[in-house]
Design a protein around this nucleic acid. Sequence first.
DNA 1: ATGGGCACCTGGCTGC
DNA 2: TGCAGCCAGGTGCCCA
Length: 271
Amino acid sequence: MPELPEVETTRRGIAPAVVGRTIARAVVRERRLRWRIPTNFERTIEGQTVRDLRRRGKYLIFDCDRGAMLLHLGMSGSLRLLTSDTPALAHDHVDLVLDTAQCLRFNDPRRFGSVLWTDSDPLAHPLLAALGPEPLSDEFDADYLARVLKGRSIAIKQALMNSQVVVGVGNIYASEALFRAHIRPRRAAGRLRHDEAAALVKAIKAVLQDAIRAGGTTLRDYIDPHGRPGYFKRKLYVYERAGEPCFVCGTPIKHFVQGQRSTYFCPTCQR
DNA sequence: ATGGGCACCTGGCTGC
DNA sequence: TGCAGCCAGGTGCCCA
């Protein structure tokens, strides 16, 4: 499911209900997520107040009194705000019951998501420490991208999806950003001209910001914390549009598999 | 250091 | 109707 816009939409949706609230109770129905939730998790988090809710890449960071909870939505995860008496359905793995009687519920059919606890600086956690820059930060600019891609033979689309290069860009927005930047997904990352790197940076920022504004992309099952879908699907130029005419030039959109992931592009608009 | 491939899961859809 | 096969918003890890 979720790339940066969906995670950010989730963060914005739950923050008002969660920040400043105390976790009265945690309920874990399924510990076998990407990483097993330790049995002392509930005891650790209960009674702590959520001081801040941040996002780093696709991770949500719940800063608490004595540490932080890290939550990743994986491919199929979602967080919802519900009343604490709402019956749990299939794949409702974790509840954080707040002192307001609201409940933050994590649902994840495929269980690629994760719920972790750290006692120390969350940004220093092994899963976060090596992450590349935030795409919407000033640090992510043409000079940075050109420098980090220099000499690399990997295809540009796969480079964009590497979280050490830049965080938050997944399979949808990698294809979309390359379309907006007029760059073919198979181009060697290290062979982009500087002006192409600049165009790509601009395209990544624009597509992510546009998608956040639309509440993210719902293809199949993504929903925001209030149960609503994201509306960016209608603004996708290439993703899942194989064989359909390019909105710009009419050429049929092409599809191929790259690193076991579907890639879409317009052979006329992208070079 | 880099890149490629696999693994982890469930559910929905397609086609026989 | 049933079922095999394929595909899906991610990413850490192992190996060459």
